[in-house]
Design a protein around this nucleic acid. Structure first.
Lengths: 125, 125
DNA sequence: CCGTATCCTGTCAGATACTG
DNA sequence: CAGTATCTGACAGGATACGG
């Protein structure tokens, strides 16, 4: 897909720098898309998010938020209240990604039954 | 997203049975989409695939193919030659998934520069 | 309230060797 | 050619405790 070498040569098909690969690695994350989807609805604070995304640990939530922020997909706003208030929100860029993922959601909902059926058939044999 | 409980209760937002989650887990795999994309072009044999998907180990390729076959996304055909010939091909179902992922590829190619730029800015601070 | 630091554990990919 | 079997190390993720 990326970086063709010479005719007949192999392609370095798994290229960490490949855009598609990078994005896939991102959304592949167990929690990232859930968080992004939640923030797409409205901004929310850390512990609120922690409660709503059930099952995520504090550490992993923190890590994931940091990564998403680094990628410019979400924004972090700090308010100097006592105690401090931190609010996370989705960015315009994050929204475009969220839209793109919608195609997958649609696929999933449309075809999941077919997949499950295929699994049952496979497991019989 | 799934399984609302009582008003005011938390939602079990990470639900392993959630269709979107299942599909995400599938394509999240490091190699699955590369393999599916390759098979979308034309059927191919095991070792041929192994050579083309550079960097994948025999074991992991085997595992991934098995999983994709189980999900009904690819098909495995055995020919009783000597030595035996095995050909993998994409199924119609697999093609629809491949199409859905195209939306992500497009997003990636369109926005990767913005993401990289955001990362550089973040890393400065 | 919003995290970081530390430890611990299970999972999984890679390497290697072997089989029909 | 097309895999399986086994071992190993790296690493992600959870639990817990603590700090700004």
């Amino acid at each position: 897909m990326n970086i063709p070498v010479n005719p007949g040569d192999r392609y370095d098909v798994y290229c960490a720098a490949c855009p598609t690969r990078m994005v896939l690695d991102r959304i592949a994350d167990k929690w990232a898309m859930l968080i992004l989807g939640r923030l797409a609805r409205q901004p929310v604070r850390f512990n609120q998010l922690r409660r709503e995304i059930d099952g995520v640990s504090q550490k992993v939530l923190s890590q994931t938020l940091k990564r998403l922020e680094r990628d410019g997909l979400i924004a972090r706003a700090v308010f100097a209240t006592v105690p401090v208030t931190v609010e996370y929100s989705i960015t315009p860029l994050g929204e475009t990604l969220n839209d793109a993922v919608a195609a997958l959601r649609t696929w999933a909902e449309t075809h999941i039954e077919t997949v499950l059926e295929a699994q049952r058939r496979y497991d019989k044999a």
